[in-house]
Simulated assay, not measured.
Amino acid sequence: MFALMIGISGMFHASYNYQDEFYLFDSLDQQKLYNSARNLEIIIWRLSHLKLPSGEPFLLTNGISDDGIFNLSFERLFGKMIAHQDMMARIISDKTNRTINKAFFSLATTALFPI
């Protein structure tokens, strides 16, 4: 599990270009953020469905209590991480879309020079 968490941490750092601080003119790649969210979904699905040879769940947090109640705290926490990555990807893609629209409209509305 430790190696998996190091891998997830490295993937998140790579999606943010290994930066800890961001400034006004810094940019991120929305595809990296989106891919890291999808990778995390795949990891969570695999961990949720992985079973030991005895048939018990690999993760104790995905077990069922004596009352028959599922413990989904693991999936809730990672669901929040996936949602944050998706939100950041959407924000970055909206930012680039606005930049493209602004550049297009500024070119379209400029006066042409006579030849």
Rank of each mutant, 00 (worst) to 15 (best):
F2C: 15
F2A: 14
F2W: 12
F2S: 13
L4E: 13
M5K: 11
I6K: 05
G7W: 01
G10D: 04
M11T: 05
F12S: 00
N17H: 02
N17D: 07
Y18E: 10
D20M: 15
E21Y: 10
E21V: 12
F22I: 02
Y23L: 13
L24Y: 09
L28K: 02
D29E: 02
D29I: 03
K32Q: 06
K32M: 04
Y34I: 10
N35D: 08
N35Y: 06
N39G: 03
L40P: 03
L40F: 02
L40K: 01
I42M: 14
I42G: 08
I43R: 00
I44G: 00
R46L: 10
R46N: 11
S48K: 12
H49P: 12
H49Y: 05
H49Q: 09
L52E: 10
P53W: 07
G55L: 03
E56A: 07
E56T: 07
P57W: 01
L59C: 03
L59N: 06
T61V: 13
T61Q: 11
T61A: 10
N62C: 06
N62F: 03
S65R: 13
D67G: 04
G68M: 01
G68F: 01
I69K: 09
I69Y: 11
I69Q: 11
I69D: 12
F70T: 15
F70R: 15
F74Q: 06
F74I: 14
F74W: 11
F78V: 02
G79H: 00
G79S: 00
G79P: 02
M81G: 01
M81V: 05
I82Y: 00
H84M: 13
Q85A: 08
Q85P: 05
M87W: 07
M87Q: 14
M87Y: 10
R90V: 08
I92H: 06
I92S: 15
S93T: 07
D94A: 13
K95L: 01
T96L: 05
R98F: 15
F105Y: 13
F105W: 13
S106T: 09
S106A: 08
S106F: 07
A108M: 00
T109S: 08
A111P: 11
A111T: 12
F113R: 14
P114W: 08
